[in-house]
Computed example of a mutant assay.
Amino acid sequence: MLSYNVRSLRDDTAALARVIHACAPDLVLVQEAPRFFRWRKAAARLAKASGLVVLSGGATAAGPLLLCSLRVTVERTEDVLLPLTPGLHRRGFATAVVRIAGARLGVLSCHLSLQRDERLAQAGLLLERLASMGVEHAVAGGDLNDVPTGKAFRHLAGPLQDCRAVAPWGGDLTFPQDGPRKRIDAVFATPGIEVLG
């Protein structure tokens, strides 16, 4: 599994596709997928160039997107729009229940608010969504816009395990992209999932 903020594909899309393809993931939790003009075509092109298919999300989830390999069997998907705070960016979740090698798994991609109180509320909605998926095991990941000591991050890390994926540059700092100084992105898993790396 890979979680990736693609910044609305404003950067080198071919390089992005090469990175995703090299990681050979079964699932990609995307944040900031294209949401406007011809967004479906842009998502399909990224998926194809990465050797994957579009699973769920995009503009219908306000930016989060799920991509998957053909090894994934899809049970169901749902795009969730979160309550809108006037004057702030619309947020949502791309979710799915899938089977990989016989294991049934809930999956959620998110991009939480820049505003502290809204972000904390969204973290609570994320936990509620995972609990309502009807699966024993689930993973959630994305751009939290919060550091590990922040309230929203801690709210998620309470009932979930922080997978603390190691970034390719040798650390776990994720933001800003041109010289990471803090970690605002994370992948979480329900207890019972063994995180290998």
Results as ranks from 00 to 15, higher is better:
residue 188 F to C: 12
residue 11 D to L: 07
residue 7 R to A: 14
residue 17 A to H: 09
residue 117 D to C: 00
residue 162 D to M: 04
residue 77 T to R: 11
residue 75 E to T: 08
residue 123 A to W: 05
residue 182 K to N: 09
residue 63 G to Q: 02
residue 82 L to T: 02
residue 37 F to K: 14
residue 99 R to D: 12
residue 67 L to C: 10
residue 28 V to Q: 00
residue 160 L to S: 06
residue 75 E to P: 02
residue 81 L to W: 04
residue 33 A to V: 05
residue 50 S to F: 00
residue 175 F to E: 06
residue 87 G to W: 08
residue 146 D to Y: 07
residue 64 P to R: 07
residue 72 V to F: 02
residue 53 V to M: 12
residue 20 I to Q: 02
residue 41 K to V: 11
residue 107 V to A: 14
residue 57 G to S: 04
residue 118 E to G: 01
residue 10 R to L: 04
residue 95 T to E: 09
residue 93 F to C: 06
residue 164 R to Y: 06
residue 77 T to I: 09
residue 152 A to F: 06
residue 54 V to P: 05
residue 49 A to V: 02
residue 102 G to H: 08
residue 175 F to T: 10
residue 65 L to G: 00
residue 74 V to W: 12
residue 79 D to G: 07
residue 191 P to W: 03
residue 119 R to V: 09
residue 115 Q to R: 12
residue 189 A to M: 07
residue 180 P to V: 01
residue 22 A to N: 12
residue 45 R to K: 15
residue 189 A to D: 06
residue 174 T to H: 04
residue 149 T to V: 12
residue 151 K to I: 04
residue 116 R to Q: 13
residue 54 V to G: 04
residue 82 L to Q: 04
residue 83 P to A: 09
residue 142 G to W: 02
residue 197 G to F: 03
residue 160 L to W: 05
residue 107 V to L: 11
residue 162 D to F: 02
residue 46 L to V: 08
residue 24 A to Y: 06
residue 164 R to A: 15
residue 32 E to F: 03
residue 88 L to S: 12
residue 108 L to E: 07
residue 131 A to C: 08
residue 47 A to F: 05
residue 81 L to S: 05
residue 127 L to E: 03
residue 177 Q to E: 09
residue 95 T to Q: 12
residue 88 L to I: 06
residue 97 V to L: 00
residue 171 G to P: 00
residue 111 H to Y: 09
residue 152 A to W: 07
residue 121 A to W: 06
residue 91 R to F: 07
residue 109 S to K: 03
residue 80 V to Q: 14
residue 50 S to L: 00
residue 34 P to N: 10
residue 9 L to T: 02
residue 178 D to C: 10
residue 109 S to D: 05
residue 86 P to C: 00
residue 136 E to T: 11
residue 22 A to E: 13
residue 156 L to I: 11
residue 32 E to C: 04
residue 82 L to G: 03
residue 60 T to P: 05
residue 189 A to I: 03
residue 153 F to A: 08
residue 177 Q to C: 10
residue 119 R to N: 14
residue 153 F to C: 05
residue 45 R to W: 13
residue 16 L to W: 08
residue 41 K to A: 15
residue 165 A to L: 15
residue 87 G to I: 07
residue 109 S to V: 01
residue 4 Y to N: 08
residue 87 G to Q: 08
residue 99 R to N: 11
residue 131 A to S: 14
residue 153 F to Y: 15
residue 137 H to N: 13
residue 42 A to D: 12
residue 118 E to T: 05
residue 128 E to N: 13
residue 84 L to R: 15
residue 106 G to L: 01
residue 155 H to R: 15
residue 156 L to R: 10
residue 83 P to D: 09
residue 106 G to E: 05
residue 143 D to H: 03
residue 127 L to G: 01
residue 125 L to S: 05
residue 108 L to N: 04
residue 36 F to Q: 15
residue 113 S to F: 01
residue 86 P to R: 06
residue 3 S to Y: 01
residue 9 L to E: 00
residue 87 G to A: 06
residue 144 L to F: 02
residue 49 A to T: 03
residue 21 H to C: 08
